[in-house]
């Protein structure tokens, strides 16, 4: 049986694509490079939108990427159920594309922050988090200047009521996100966005002092194999 194929998107200014592809490979999947200018998903089984500063974060983080030719294909595919994970700038793009509600604003402290952050897993009902336990506390790196999650009251209430908050910061909120939100999912659960970086926490030797990011990749690969 051939390995499950996970697309990794590169926009101009994407930075963590190499890390994301490596994490997919380490988990036993095939990482398929997807280029922003090609309106072609190459038949992948899932898509990873990595972090970076796509288009230099000009205008607003993710605001320009959202109009890339690839996104014209990705948006309807995600609406139709294709599993999509966006981390950091990828999360920002998903919000700009209205695949996820709310927005990410300048950190409350106004500084870019790179640190190993405690995160609580709030929902395992997504194809990206099934290998976690609900309530599990994990450590993942965060590295962003604009990660303060905001949404209007009704949206927040709906996210909470619908179990769509997937991750919350634990042991201190680094950026002022409402309700300590670190990551959310869409109603269907196939689209997940989070500010932390699972792809930097998959190896003992490099990256964060944790391998808690592995479960994202094992979760999706199991899901795809069993599909």
């Amino acid at each position: 049986m051939s390995a499950a194929r996970v697309g990794v998107v590169t926009f101009p200014g994407t930075l963590d694509d190499q890390d994301a592809a490596r994490a997919v490979r380490h988990a036993g999947g095939e990482a398929v490079p997807l280029w922003h200018a090609d309106a072609d998903l190459k038949g992948v089984d899932a898509v990873f939108l990595p972090g970076g500063f796509s288009y230099g974060d000009y205008l607003r983080c993710g605001a320009i990427s959202r109009f890339a030719p690839l996104m014209e294909e990705l948006i309807p595919a995600a609406r139709a159920g294709l599993p999509v994970l966006g981390t950091c700038n990828g999360f920002q793009i998903l919000c700009e594309a209205h695949l996820l509600p709310g927005a990410l604003m300048r950190n409350a402290g106004l500084h870019y922050i790179c640190r190993d952050q405690g995160i609580r897993v709030e929902s395992t009902a997504t194809p990206w988090t099934a290998d976690f336990a609900e309530g599990q506390e994990i450590v993942l790196p965060i590295k962003h200047g604009e990660g303060r999650y905001v949404a209007d009251e009704a949206t927040l209430a709906a996210l909470e009521a619908g179990g769509q908050v997937v991750f919350r910061y634990a042991g201190g909120n680094p950026n002022g996100s409402l309700n300590d939100i670190a990551g959310i999912r869409n109603e269907a659960g196939n689209v997940v966005g989070l500010m932390p970086h699972p792809e930097h926490a998959v190896e003992d030797l490099t990256g964060a002092p944790s391998t808690d990011g592995r479960a994202f990749f094992t979760s999706i690969l199991k899901k795809l194999v069993n599909a």
């Binding site: 890390d19 500084h111 870019y112 790179c114 590295k143 792809e199 190896e203 990256g207």
Partner: peptide, 14 residues
């Protein structure tokens, strides 16, 4: 100072 710098990107920082 150093928490304002990305030390993880590219995944090869030992």
């Amino acid at each position: 100072v150093t928490s304002q710098y990305d030390r993880y990107v590219r995944g090869n920082t030992v």
